[in-house]
Design a binder for these strands. Structure first.
Length: 465
RNA sequence: GUGGUUGUAGCUCAGUAGGUUAGAGCACCAGAUUGUGAUUCUGGGGGUCGUGGGUUCGAGCCCCAUCUUCCACCCCA
């Protein structure tokens, strides 16, 4: 009989108490902001029908879906000859459900299913784990949380402006000061494609441009040529990588580059409107700037984002001076629910990467002490008498809203004190024969190492501060 | 999915050319100190060296497979 060593599946993690407390601090900060902007929570099942999920993320995405084996006799629908047609054919027959791959598609499914009950514009946020059968790497897991906020059923660019506001508010509340919100517009990218003589190729161009940070101008050049973009078009594109100036100057330069392209003009007009909204909102994103004087909100024509369903404004957020990719991103999509037969619903949404934000806050040591929760006071007992004496005291403390616990057995004092020390419990109350006789309990401040004899009322008023 | 990398005590890691009984620090337990924690001192428990095969007189070390870790690519949060 071999004793099996326990383990967890590849790419998954346990979160210990200290980590959960810090993660909740991030989640709560995000929730508070979402709700302040009128977004309400939504939860959808961990599993969806496979038919809802497949075909929504491209061939690559379909490969990364976790499928759930049908219960019972999962082979009942398969025939021996199915085997010969390969695994994909079998998969369809033995698995009808899958774990959700993101929160956006389940949201679209929800909107379509509940179109008659929903009042548009519909604003929802969703904080739940998603699963991908990707190969894990640092900062990439098979189970991870997404924090999405989307609004559907309105074309108003106020939504885009409010997204900028929410990003700014959340990151500021988390103590971050040096970050950049990059914004761009798919129309501008399409306009650029047209202006350089590659109309309609903005999809390819976006995918490649998105890698500019990573592979550099040379790498982008090579890959664009590989994808069949002409030499002259690439040459016209390259000056755009290094455009400089204020946001207003950038818009001016783009105006002349994009000329009469309809898509380009649409993009410019949208961005101008977003700026207008932000300025009326007195947005801090417009006034704040990072250490090198770059405005917090920055138009970046090289921002592309790989996802193909974006059609309008796109966002990405980078914390400066830390080695970490974007911690938030999103954009407008015109036809998310179209895939479920409900066309013409425009929406805009974005998402925070909690795991990455966690790492950034850890690196910059921005988790406040107040985000630590825990027992405030430990009651130490010596025997049955002191245990019974301590019980009503314990209840009194809890009734007063003080996190209190009684060590559950009359262990050696050294052990009980050690427990308090280990759990960083700041106060200990000793209840022994002397204390029971006098009614004055011994309160020990673990940090100062001082102790005093006090009544329970005195202790409560002291701890409640 | 492609190429590479990693695995030794609860944790972080040593382990020399393949050669007796696999080590250290931290952590844990006990005692010094029967009513006082993070310091100090003394002692103690704990490893089938990721797993399964193979080569060898002999394997933690070499070979194969597998799982895991991390990295680059693909893609993405």
């Amino acid at each position: 009989m071999s004793k099996e060593k326990p383990s967890i599946p590849k790419g998954t993690r346990d979160f210990g108490p200290a980590v959960v407390v810090k993660r909740n601090y991030i989640f709560n900060t995000i929730k508070r902001t979402f709700e302040k902007f009128g977004y309400l929570p939504l939860e959808t099942p961990a599993m969806e029908q496979l038919s809802v999920l497949t075909g929504k993320y491209g061939d690559e995405g379909d490969q990364l879906l976790f499928k759930i084996l049908n219960s019972g006799d999962f082979l009942s629908k398969t025939k021996p000859e199915d085997l010969e047609q390969g695994y994909k054919n079998i998969t369809r027959k033995v698995a009808e459900k899958g774990l959700r791959y993101d929160l956006t598609v389940p949201f679209a499914r929800f909107v379509v299913m509940n179109r008659n009950e929903i009042t548009f514009p519909f604003k929802r946020y969703q904080i739940q784990p998603v699963w991908r059968a990707d190969r894990p790497q640092k900062g990439r897991y098979r189970e991870f949380y997404q924090c999405d906020a989307d609004v559907v059923g309105t074309n108003s660019l106020l939504c885009e402006a409010e997204i900028v506001q929410m990003i700014n508010e959340v990151l500021t509340a988390l103590g971050l000061t040096d970050f950049t919100i990059k914004i761009n517009h798919r129309g501008i990218l399409a306009g650029i494609a047209e202006a350089i003589g590659e109309k309609g190729r903005e999809g390819d161009i976006c995918v490649v441009i998105d890698k500019l940070d990573k592979i550099g101008a040379e790498g982008v050049r090579k890959e664009l040529l590989e994808r069949g973009i002409s030499e002259s078009a690439v040459a016209k594109l390259e000056p755009l990588y290094t455009l400089e100036g204020t946001n207003e100057q950038l818009l001016e330069q783009l105006q002349s580059i994009l000329g009469e392209t309809a898509e380009g003009q649409r993009g410019l007009a949208d961005l101008r409107e977003v700026w207008q909204y932000l300025s009326k909102l007195n947005s801090q994103a417009l006034t704040a700037s990072n250490a090198s004087g770059i405005p917090r909100l920055m138009l970046d024509v090289t921002l592309a984002r790989g996802l193909s369903y974006y059609t309008g404004c796109i966002f990405e957020v980078k914390v400066n001076n830390v080695s970490m990719g974007s911690i938030s991103g999103g954009g407008r999509y015109d036809n998310l629910t179209g895939m479920f037969g409900m066309p013409g619903v425009s929406g805009v949404g974005f998402s925070f990467g909690v795991d990455r934000i966690y790492d950034v806050l850890e690196e910059l040591m921005l988790f406040p002490d107040s985000s630590q929760v825990g027992t405030k006071v430990l009651l130490v007992q010596f025997d049955k008498d002191s245990e019974f004496y301590a019980l009503p005291v314990l209840q009194q403390l809890r009734d007063a809203g003080i996190a209190a616990e009684l060590y559950p057995e009359p262990a050696k004092l050294k052990k009980q004190m050690g427990y308090a020390d280990q759990k960083s419990i700041p106060y200990v109350i000793l209840i022994g024969s002397e204390e029971m006789a006098s009614g004055k309990l011994k309160l020990r401040d673990m940090q100062l190492g001082e102790q005093q004899d006090l009544t329970i009322e005195e202790i409560i008023s002291l701890l409640i501060k």
